[in-house]
Design a protein around this nucleic acid. Structure first.
Lengths: 349, 349
DNA sequence: ATATCTCTTTTGATCGTTCAAATACAGCTC
DNA sequence: GAGCTGTATTTGAACGATCAAAAGAGATAT
């Protein structure tokens, strides 16, 4: 009773051998039902748990997955990160997997971490966020056949999906901004501006395209150009961008982020006091909630769940069985608020 | 070259034995300098890394620490959590430790997780957040002699520090609200209200006491009572609470959270249009930054670093050497903004 | 009666490291 | 040169699990 039970101690107690007890746990179909029952009984009676280190040493699997924390405000952050991580951890731990964090300054350092973590035969796979054009990380992992799933599409320069052989889960930003735009159209707005980032970022271009497609029939292509502004992310830049859009006759604005939307809504409120500004943000951050700003919400929890499912499928599958790469594009949800001011709560300690 | 190098393969290469190579790594002083040099050379040439699983199996130490993710909006969350986790992970990983996440619905489930994670001889210690009155988790861990540090004081009902034998790091909320209050006094405000939560929460009472102490000389004790309001956390409740305070003659408000402060600042702005509202929040969340709201900022990164240091000290120390519990109370920083509206950026994807 | 097959259980070896104790070897002492 | 001391290195065993293959027990077929 002094020390933790082991396979051997259980076997002695039951008058069986190590291996039979081991089989009862890992390959129950090989064990006689009656024996299985007895073993399980003793397992729950003693509270036995297989020693992870020993198992890992033999099987070379840790049931541990790596997640990189981004430096500061990049990729999914803050409240989004919280929700994502929580959902990911929860879903994985239900199936005996765990999430190990690591920090890295940049992609290069992240890749160095990969090899360190793998050389110590420590992690079975990785979850990547913040994918971007020419992402070296996925190439590195792909080349070595290491299981991983990204939250975010590969954003290859060549639009083709053919050569992207890794699994990913992403949120359909295009669908989100399209819905937002259609909503504003339905409210009677004719000239709806898009306030985003400079062209070139996969995420930003994707969100812009949704707005453009929803507006395609209603506005001449030339106007589409003038109704779209690209600035750096930030409240101040958002206000400035919105000013431009107002000058060009926009009466409503769809934004690529909540930061931009917040600046834009200030600008519109100043331009037309009294009326709730027709501005829609993106990500549905606590800031949007607190300010009563409408926003496109990403189903972060669902994304994490999908990622966990895909990873489990790959890792639980037999060793060399090639599992095809899985791709999931999730629909975001438009969260409408009256825009009149603070309503709900930001997160706080 | 085919497989990863091991102690044995290194030893063969060098014409030494396993153990000497092992000693070169773990107890260099036992090895002849010349030998040590040769071993280190080969180690870096081959890129050898000790197998964590094997080491863990033998030493019963995983160099892995557990961190529980809170369900939703409780404890340190969102942007704060992000910064805290990042700093914690970074500091620990520099010394060969790693952070493993786990999710638990409530404290009881968290304790269950502890035993599971420990029975699998998996985690060496824990970092706890969101301590509260009568916290069963610290008792459980203390009783079993498991290393852990909490972010947050024990908040024992008996104000005595004597019986609190575990290590903790916390931010001095009292000092924060006191500084905020003194700042407002310096700006000429006489009747400064406190907008907090109902009495009973350690964190809330602590923050209130800072305001009370700063105001002690300037306002009669009776007024102190009427200038303090306790409501549930939230923007709407904040606005309502601020309305009460205004009725009672307050011209400025110190708040226990940014949510409350946001609601309060709306209320004050409505009461005195044109003037930036004299409101100070707590936690310096992205919401405060975005709204140009002054706020008391917790040195989260520093707190995480301190926690990492304490844990490392305990874990790296020899087995049964009793390390005394460490307590660190960090000073928060008052971040002043003009309160006129959006300035900086909320976090976004 | 022996061989063949299936189902179940057992045995021996191994994963890579560290602990504990043994050994080798040099320099000193008497 | 035997005995002691101390440093440097080596050997055997163990940590707790799984893999691979052998062995035992029944049932069925030849």
């Amino acid at each position: 009773m002094a020390s933790r039970p082991t396979l051997v101690s259980l076997a002695e107690q039951l008058g069986l051998s190590r291996q039979t007890v081991s089989n009862a746990i890992n390959a129950p179909e090989r064990v006689k039902p009656e024996t299985l029952r007895r073993v399980n009984e003793t397992i729950s009676a003693t509270g036995y748990r297989p020693n992870t280190a020993a198992r890992q040493l033999r099987t070379r699997r840790s049931r541990n997955l790596g997640f990189r924390l981004m430096p500061t405000v990049d990729g999914i952050n803050g409240a989004i990160l919280d929700r994502f991580l929580h959902s990911l951890t929860e879903n994985l731990q239900e199936h005996g997997y765990r999430v190990t964090l690591f920090a890295a300054r940049d992609d290069e350092a992240e890749i160095r971490s990969y090899s360190e973590l793998l050389e110590a035969s420590d992690l079975d796979g990785f979850v990547l966020t913040g994918t971007h054009h020419g992402d070296a990380r996925s190439d590195w992992l792909l080349a070595r056949g290491i299981p991983f799933v990204t939250f975010g599409r590969p954003w290859r320069d060549s639009g083709g999906d053919e050569d992207c052989t890794h699994s990913w889960v992403d949120v359909d930003g295009q669908a989100g901004t399209a819905e937002a735009t259609r909503y504003l159209l339905g409210r009677g707005h004719q000239r709806i501006g898009f306030l985003g980032w400079p062209a070139g970022s996969g995420v930003g271009d994707d969100r812009r395209s949704g707005w453009a497609s929803a507006l395609a029939g209603t506005v001449p292509p030339a106007d589409l150009e003038s109704l779209s502004v690209g600035v750096a992310d930030g409240t101040r830049q958002g206000a400035e961008g919105a000013r431009l859009l107002l000058e060009r006759g926009a009466t409503a604005v769809v934004c690529a982020s909540d930061s931009l939307a917040l600046g834009a809504s200030e600008q519109l409120r100043a331009a037309a006091p009294g009326t709730p500004p027709a501005v829609i943000g993106f990500d549905d951050t606590p800031v949007a909630a607190a300010m009563g700003l409408s926003s496109v919400a990403q189903p972060v929890e669902e994304a994490a769940r999908e990622i966990a499912d895909i990873l489990r499928h790959v890792l639980d599958g037999s060793a060399e069985e090639q599992v095809p790469a899985a791709h999931r594009l999730l629909k975001p949800r438009l969260v409408l608020r009256d825009g009149g001011g603070p309503l709900a709560s930001p997160s706080s300690r």
